[in-house]
Simulated scan of single mutants.
Amino acid sequence: MKPLDDAHARPSGVSDATVEAVGKLSEAFEVIEEARGALFAFHRNLGRADLTLGEAVDQLRAAGHDQLADDIETDLVGRNVLAGRWTFQVVEEFEDGYYAAFREHDQRVRDALMDGRRHVYEAEMKQARRTHGRPGHEATPQDR
């Protein structure tokens, strides 16, 4: 089968099993990217919740409920979400540890087995599944 384009062409001598294995590793890393996005959403949502909580404390105080406002302010506003950590620290630890290690292994495998090429498995799947010559099924944007 003709490759989609040079950037996604299977390197010479690479087996189907290798393309599939590298494709599976790429799929796993994409799941990690989704999890990373969820972690950033968690980070932003907790930050927004803490700021909104601060507004609620101000409103409770303005409505004359000083003791309740003081209790919430001292116990919850600015509180760590995990032992010793705000969410930015959780994000940084994840990115510097597990995420960085996963990304490095993904890159190392692609460099060693695919000449650094990304998505070779998916590109071959596209070539096999698209209707060649039909509008909307072009191999690349340049083929339009």
Rank of each mutant, 00 (worst) to 15 (best):
P3S: 04
A35G: 08
I32N: 04
A17C: 02
A101Y: 03
L39Y: 04
G37P: 07
D5H: 15
E34V: 13
I72A: 04
E27V: 09
L53I: 03
L53A: 00
L46D: 01
A49D: 04
V109C: 05
R85T: 08
E93G: 15
H8W: 06
P141N: 07
A35E: 01
M114S: 02
E55R: 08
E124I: 10
T87L: 06
L46A: 12
F42W: 07
T87R: 00
S26P: 01
G23R: 07
D96S: 12
D6S: 14
A63M: 10
T18M: 15
K2S: 12
D58P: 01
D111H: 05
R103G: 02
S15F: 06
Y121N: 13
R36D: 11
V91Y: 03
D5I: 05
F40R: 15
W86T: 07
V57S: 08
G13M: 09
A7F: 05
T74V: 12
M114I: 03
E124F: 06
G136P: 10
K24D: 10
E30P: 01
D115P: 04
E95L: 15
E30L: 03
Q107P: 00
V22S: 03
R117T: 07
L113M: 09
R130S: 07
D106R: 15
R48K: 12
I72T: 03
D70T: 15
G136Q: 04
L46Y: 13
D70W: 11
V19L: 09
D5F: 06
H65V: 02
E27T: 11
H119V: 03
